[in-house]
């Protein structure tokens, strides 16, 4: 396949091939980074980090999983690195209610940002699971490969998330 050929060439050190690969995957990377961070500038940062990392580690791709799957994994790891570094740098500013969003966002987006934040606190990998399965449309097995856990773990997480959302709706219903 064309993509496979492209990757092999990039692994061999062909810069043009790597450039093409970047062109075709930057959107995917950015989209996921945006969904993960809900913030344009942050997403751009993460996407750049991911591209840099891709440059260094494309040689490690073994064609065992689909390239996109492997890429998701890389982006997630970059995003988590990025977040950790943010926490370190903005140690003092965190409590000033660092803006989670761009500001110019629809109600839906604000709602999603809130929910994702809750999921993040719900447990490790919850947010990523939700994003991969619901937003990116991966199967449970694929998401499992990306996150390095078993398929059943993903199914369990999805179930937990659904239950959490149920409780949330109920709570909001009560207060309303």
């Amino acid at each position: 396949m064309d993509e496979r050929d492209l990757i092999s060439r990039a692994q061999a050190g062909d810069a043009t091939a790597f450039g093409e690969l970047l062109d075709s995957y930057y959107d995917t990377i950015f989209r996921f980074a945006w969904r993960w961070s809900r913030h344009r500038a942050n997403a751009e940062d993460i996407a750049q980090l991911a591209c840099l990392k891709l440059a260094g580690s494309i040689a490690q791709y073994r064609f065992q999983a689909a390239f996109a799957t492997w890429l998701y994994r890389l982006v997630i790891s970059c995003a988590q690195d990025w977040k950790r570094s943010q926490q370190r740098h903005d140690h003092d500013e965190l409590h000033e209610g660092a803006s989670l969003t761009d500001g110019s966002q629809s109600e839906d987006q604000i709602y999603l940002a809130q929910v994702l934040l809750e999921l993040e606190e719900l447990g490790e990998g919850m947010k990523e699971t939700a994003l991969l399965v619901h937003a990116e449309g991966l199967s449970h097995a694929e998401a499992g490969t990306v996150l390095g856990v078993s398929e059943s773990t993903i199914s369990w997480r999805i179930h937990t998330i659904r239950r959490h959302m149920g409780k949330r709706e109920a709570r909001i219903g009560e207060s309303a």
Binding site: A10, A15, F18, G19, L22, D23, Y26, D27, F30, R31, R40, E44, A47, Q48, C51, L52, L54, A55, G56, I58
Partner: peptide, 18 residues
């Protein structure tokens, strides 16, 4: 994606790649 950011990322990654 913002084309400028995209260009910057591409450039940076390519340089890193080389």
């Amino acid at each position: 994606a913002d084309p400028a950011a995209r260009r910057a990322a591409r450039q940076a990654a390519l340089a890193e790649f080389t």
